[in-house]
Design a protein around this nucleic acid. Structure first.
Length: 804
RNA sequence: GCCGGCAUGUCGGAAUUGGCAGACGAGACAGACUCAAAAUCUGUUAUCCGCAAGGGUGUGUGGGUUCGAGUCCCACUGCCGGCACCA
């Protein structure tokens, strides 16, 4: 009687059919929907169940959009430049291109197990010359626009990876990739002027449908602040020192000044008496690492012996040096208001410097202040003509007052720094620049791109700040494309972010050798409607991609400014006790056996059922039994019902509409775990009905299958076929629901006395207030003691009788 | 230190606008089937008192608003994430 459920046979059958007759077809009429996964690095370790999660989420969403009548762009590719392949090459002598290709092959096979509707004709690989030709082309364009420039300065240097790092790649003073302590190294670097886009990157966040958390992280990273620059004269000298402050309203309280030890005037401010101490201090500061500087328990500093003049009151204020002042933020010099800043307060206490309170705390001046009154707001005091003002008002007006008096100017500052873009490693895109002794830096002519990586004997990073490419004379030595003189190639390569900053533009036109992407295709298919990936790229990849897209918009290569309209960050799948899955921890769960034992559909369902998609979830293999049981019960119910072919009953129709409502609304809310719950709950209800009525009508089974199709595509397709359909379920419409058919004739209403439920009454759904209350009183009559003060009836929800 | 988020049974989690807390699943326990086990099916499963009917308590802690609070407000505790001397 019962048709046995053989997931292997069913999945194999449909995989082959979909291969022959793809279900996601572009007929040129359907609206497009671009659903993108963050493309993976093809690691030699393969995929674990955590990688699956994001891909299942995006595929279920893509299939839903497909059934809603969209042509879905759902591509996959490989972010294949980067250190692991290179480190593998160093260890084993295998060219990164070879190990990468074999990793891509393995992971592609694993990804195909998910049965996602990826369009493999769109596949891209960042290490493919056909692709990185355009990565280099973008760089050349940026160079021509003045956005890529060379600079020598002390950059973040990872001594383990032996390469420079961008600011975004330093986490708590450590290398984002390997965790080694980051040091400073003076290096000639290629930089990208991302700071030019700071305001646009900030303002356009408002236009994005992204998690607030990610927007906030980008906002904080860009770190825009408003304030003023104030020019302080130097006693006995013509020069000025300009400071940046966000609190110009506290200028009267500036009792000393501190310069970063790297400040250009630092050394020259020393007097004969202080010279030795000042030079020692500057030297010591230069030797400190980021981590040392961050973990400093106590402030250090040295008096230069020289005084500045506070322009607001002509007071002499001593100039000190201290490494708590950052050289590369603002002007590298600050005015210190110890009464209203913790750091200045600590410094003043330690070195016995004067403290002048200029904003009254709770309306009074406190003498002496026990601690700094920070983020001060209130009445301005000890401030000459400013006395009696509200600090919040003065804060807004002071910059203009200072500017009018010729003592400074209104200004803004950003925490965002330009992007250190060169890496001293082999396995990356060569930076297409030629250094000519006559012409300076000359870009490789666009028609000569891609500039390929040469073969090397040793992939070992040199550690000197040159990449391994520098050792290959025949590659390095070239002719200047402008004047023909002997010249040398740039030997640094690009960071891994270079390819990932724009790859999503390339999928839709991946073999175009004339343009990065054709205007027609870009207009037709881009930008990305839904982007799904982990939150770890909040300020790296996602910020860089926005910057690249804005640049490409500015040069007319694309017609939109923001690459990703909607962003969804899925949570991480961890091992037991929330420990991140890793080979070294030995807690990696591979999807391969699970697919084999339970089937792709079961694993897909469980990946979604494991918890809210945006939260981390601990993996527990046992849970997959639950969804597997559900699928098998549905299978049995469906195949039995097809055989019995019973007519639809009122209960079946009601259940069908309730299911459609629950699945659709929960799916729209991206509450994917509760979508799966809805399937289980309604399947249980249908099984009960089938027990009583001998089966379920075929239309209800069909609706169930259609709703299930984005999640468990194989079983849904098989059931659909058994219901008598020749064409794929994915070309059927997404079911709609009718709220009238969902509703019960009667409803249950709890009756409370003083907020405690004492009875539940069953009444007609459109009962009026008086009848409802009467029925409620009747139901709890034996408990009604005392005087009724109030009766509350919330239609269809609750009756509450308040008794005294 | 600053900024954000979270806290519900044994476990993962659910609960539209404040309206029966614990849906759905895992696990456990009991029963059916079986020589037996697995699988499957049926039932029970927040906690306390009670044979039961029934009643008390209960969403990190303490308070508040409300007829009514997991949900709103105030204070606190714990965990997670971001930034980290940004003047």
């Amino acid at each position: 009687m019962a048709v046995s459920f053989d997931h292997r046979a069913i999945e194999k059958k449909w995989r082959e059919k979909w291969e022959q007759n793809p279900i996601n077809i572009n007929d040129g009429k359907k609206p497009k929907y671009y659903c993108l996964d963050m493309f993976p690095y093809p690691s030699g370790n393969g995929l674990h169940v955590g990688h699956w999660r994001g891909y299942v989420i995006s595929d279920a969403w893509s299939r839903y959009k497909l059934m809603q009548g969209h042509y879905v762009i759902h591509p996959m590719g490989w972010d294949a430049f980067g250190l692991p392949a290179e480190n593998y090459a160093i260890k084993n002598g295998v060219h990164p291109a070879i190990s990468t290709a074999s990793n891509v092959k393995n992971i592609k096979k694993q990804i195909q197990d998910i049965a996602a509707i990826y369009d493999w004709d769109m596949e891209v690989n960042t290490t493919d010359p056909e692709f990185f030709k355009w990565t280099q082309w973008i760089f050349v364009k940026m160079f021509k626009e003045g956005l890529a420039y060379e600079k020598e300065f002390p950059i973040n240097w990872c001594p383990s990876c032996k390469t420079g790092l961008a600011n975004e790649e330093v986490v708590n003073g450590r290398c984002e990739r390997c965790g080694a302590e980051v040091t400073k190294k003076n290096l000639r670097q290629w930089m990208l002027k991302i700071t030019k886009y700071a305001d646009r990157l900030l303002e356009d966040l408002d236009t994005l449908d992204w998690p607030e958390k990610v927007k906030k992280m980008q906002t904080d990273w860009i770190g825009k602040s408003y304030g003023a620059e104030v020019d302080f004269g130097i006693e006995g000298r013509d020069e000025k020192i300009t400071v940046y402050t966000t609190r110009p309203d506290t200028l009267y309280g500036a009792t000393f000044m501190v310069l970063s030890p790297e400040h250009e005037l630092a050394k020259s401010l020393a007097t004969d008496e202080t010279r030795e101490a000042v030079e020692n201090y500057i030297y010591e500061a230069s030797m400190k690492s980021n981590v040392d500087r961050m973990q400093a328990k106590e402030k250090t500093g040295v008096f230069t012996g020289t005084y500045a003049i506070n322009p607001i009151n002509d007071q002499k204020v001593p100039i000190w040096l201290s490494d708590y002042v950052l050289a590369d933020y603002g002007t590298g010099a600050i005015m210190c208001v110890p009464a209203h800043d913790d750091r200045d307060f600590e410094f003043a206490k330690k070195f016995g410097l004067p403290i002048v309170q200029v904003i009254a705390k709770d309306g009074v001046e406190i003498d002496p202040l026990e601690e700094a009154y920070t983020n001060a707001e209130g009445l301005v005091i000890n401030s000459g003509e400013w006395n009696g003002m509200e600090s919040s008002v003065l804060k807004k007006e002071a910059p203009d007052m200072i500017e009018k008096a010729g003592k400074g100017r209104r200004t803004v500052n950003y925490k965002l720094r330009d992007w250190v873009f060169s890496r001293q490693r082999y396995w990356g895109e060569p930076i297409p620049i030629i250094h000519c002794p006559h012409c300076g830096n000359v870009p490789v002519p666009e028609e000569e791109l891609p500039l390929l990586l040469p073969e090397v004997e040793s992939y070992q990073p040199t550690g000197t700040g040159e990449s391994p490419l520098a050792a290959i004379d025949e590659w390095v030595n070239c002719k200047c494309p402008v004047c023909g003189a002997d010249a040398k190639r740039e030997t640094n390569t690009m960071p891994q972010w270079a390819g990932s900053s724009w790859y999503f533009l390339r999928y839709v036109d991946n073999h175009n050798d004339q343009e990065l992407v054709s205007k027609e295709k870009a207009d037709q298919y881009l930008p990305v409607d839904m982007y799904i990936g982990g939150v770890e790229h909040a300020v790296l990849h996602l910020l860089y991609s926005r910057f690249y897209t804005k640049f490409l918009y500015d040069i007319g290569a694309v017609g939109f400014e923001e690459p990703f309209h909607k962003l969804f960050n899925q949570g991480m799948i961890t091992g037991k006790n929330g420990i991140k899955m890793s080979k070294s921890k030995g807690n990696v769960v591979s999807p391969d056996d699970l697919v084999n034992n339970y089937g792709c559909d079961s694993l897909r369902m469980y990946e979604l059922f494991v918890g809210p998609p945006e939260l981390d979830a601990e993996w527990d293999d046992r849970g997959i039994d639950g969804v597997n049981r559900f699928l098998r019960r549905f299978w049995t119910l469906a195949t039995d019902s097809v055989e019995k072919n019973v007519p639809a009953s009122k209960a079946m129709i009601k259940e069908r509409h309730k299911l459609t409502y629950d699945v659709t609304t929960r799916l729209e809310a991206f509450s994917l775990n509760t979508v799966i719950s809805a399937f289980m709950e309604h399947n249980n209800a249908l099984m009960d009905i089938a027990k009583k009525e001998g089966g379920i009508d075929i239309e209800t089974i069909e609706v169930f299958a259609r709703l299930l199709a984005p999640f468990a595509p194989h079983i849904a397709e098989e059931v659909w076929e058994r219901c008598g359909h020749d064409e794929t379920i994915f070309h059927s419409e997404w079911p709609s629901y009718d709220e009238k058919l969902m509703a019960d004739d009667s409803i249950e209403i709890p009756v409370q006395i003083n907020g405690k439920t004492r009875a539940v009454i069953n009444v007609a759904k459109d009962i009026d207030k008086d009848s409802a209350i009467a029925a409620g009183r009747e139901a709890v009559s034996d408990r009604l003691a005392g005087t009724v003060v109030k009766e509350i009836y919330v239609p269809g929800k609750i009756i509450n009788i308040v008794v005294k």
